[in-house]
């Protein structure tokens, strides 16, 4: 099992890095897909089959297709010439430093071998919850939890997605009516 874990972990992390550094956006999208599939394989190793399949179905199968779809309509030669500006470089450097510090704080004093992170990751519920739900992996248990105990977070996520969707529609829509009003 450890061998499989190492293979899939490398398959997740290395393409993720390559996705960030690759100049060609199509290569970047393909690396991202590989990374998603690798992550799905990691879920399978945890026996979370439903999560693994949703990962492939939603991210690799639907969202990335749309990404690739848009990227392919771009002019590749123009896109590859774009160089990141000074402000962007500095901002990304600061973010990287913040992430490293954050992970170090999260790991605590005893580093990667520490039990606190492993405990946090393996806990089946909110760490502070009074009556944690048992760890269940079947699709039915997952749906049951989603519609009973976790109803509020579930609904809030749905509203968030709806808000972002409406925002995208408004931003991407051509403003013909307002221009028409200005002209008249």
């Amino acid at each position: 099992m450890d061998v499989l874990f190492i293979i899939f972990a490398v398959l997740t992390v290395v393409p993720a890095l390559l996705m960030v550094v690759s100049r060609n956006p199509v290569n970047g999208a393909m690396f991202m897909i590989i990374s998603f599939v690798g992550m799905a394989a990691l879920f399978v190793l945890l026996e979370a089959f439903l999560l693994a399949i949703l990962q492939v179905l939603v991210y690799a199968g639907a969202i990335m297709v749309l990404f690739l779809f848009i990227i392919m309509l771009l002019d590749m030669d123009e896109v590859e010439k774009i160089k990141p500006g000074t402000v962007t470089s500095i901002a990304s450097g600061i973010s990287l430093a913040l992430i490293i510090v954050g992970v170090a704080v999260l790991l605590g004093s005893d580093g990667l071998a520490g039990q606190s992170v492993a405990h946090l990751a393996a806990a089946p519920d909110f760490p502070s919850a009074d009556n944690p739900m048992g760890l269940a992996l079947s699709a039915k248990a997952y749906g049951f939890g989603l519609f009973t105990k976790y109803m509020l977070p579930f609904q809030l996520t749905g509203v968030l997605l709806l808000v972002s969707m409406i925002g995208v529609i408004i931003i991407s829509k051509k403003r013909e009516t307002s221009q028409g009003q200005e002209q008249s």
Binding site: L50, V56, L57, G61, A62, V65, A139
Partner: peptide, 9 residues
């Protein structure tokens, strides 16, 4: 779900 996921690839 497996069939839908894989065939979407």
């Amino acid at each position: 779900l497996f069939i839908f996921a894989v065939s979407s690839l």
